[in-house]
Design a protein around this nucleic acid. Structure first.
Lengths: 131, 131
DNA sequence: CAACATCTTTACGTTTACGTAAACTTCCCC
DNA sequence: GGGGAAGTTTACGTAAACGTAAAGATGTTG
């Protein structure tokens, strides 16, 4: 018997640097589904993974609704063909978004290079004028 | 004499698939600074570039405040050393963010691969059961 | 056993990023 | 010269993602 590790809401909040309010809000929005012991929420490793996905999604500008979709891509899929095709479509859609973001990041990185260049050159100018 | 091209608010809205309300809002937030001919706004190519940066920022999850910072990295920097150092710090900060996003994207792409695999396998199962 | 930490629910407040509507000029066209 | 089409300002509305506060249950520790 493999007993799973469990987490309290406070533990997760500390680990991920968010508030308990935020975690409860994600549950409210259907992104997390913790167990209960009485009133108290008990989180399993799978909840922790979901939380990681949500926060990663946030860093990439996903809405909670979008992250919920993403999480559902991980739920064991005993679906029918129609559902599976919809799933594949969603995956393709997310891929396209990621590809666009990759482009955006590369463009921004290049512009950071150029901005840094300009700043360094302006700094050199100041050095020279001060001799 | 090199006369610059100009754009109306409607032209830009159409080109970037946003509303004029949105463009005016960005001006309100200090992200755009169009000329005026009487009451009417006249946009220069530099405004158009700024708009592109804003929209790219949005795709990467930047707030308008963050995009405003980014845009300021492009303003000709006739600053003093202190300002320039602050500028370099900001650039480094944005770089770190982009690096994190890159990681996030790669992780997500891999998970999309896996999700697609699972979906395809589930589909194959259905095919077999139906023979 | 009193006090403190941690948990709970309920509910109103706040920020960001616009949407939507009203009421008004300006220009162009037949 | 009476409509449109496109521009303007002003202002209230809204969805998303929490923040913040109140009021209470639960556990544990000196």
């Amino acid at each position: 018997m493999t007993t799973q590790k469990t987490y309290s809401i406070g533990e997760l909040a500390r680990e991920f640097q968010i508030t308990t309010r935020t975690i409860r809000f994600y549950e409210d929005q259907g992104l997390l589904h913790p167990q209960r012991r009485g009133q108290t929420r008990i989180y399993l490793p799978s909840d922790r993974v979901a939380l990681k996905l949500i926060l990663r999604g946030k860093r990439l500008g996903l809405s909670l609704a979008e992250s919920r979709e993403l999480i559902q891509l991980y739920i064991p899929t005993g679906d029918n063909r129609h559902q599976l095709q919809a799933l594949l479509d969603k995956i393709a859609e997310k891929r396209a978004m990621l590809a666009q973001q990759l482009k955006d990041i590369q463009a921004m990185q290049q512009e950071m290079d150029e901005a840094e260049q300009r700043a360094r050159e302006a700094m050199m100018q100041l050095e020279n004028n001060n001799v």
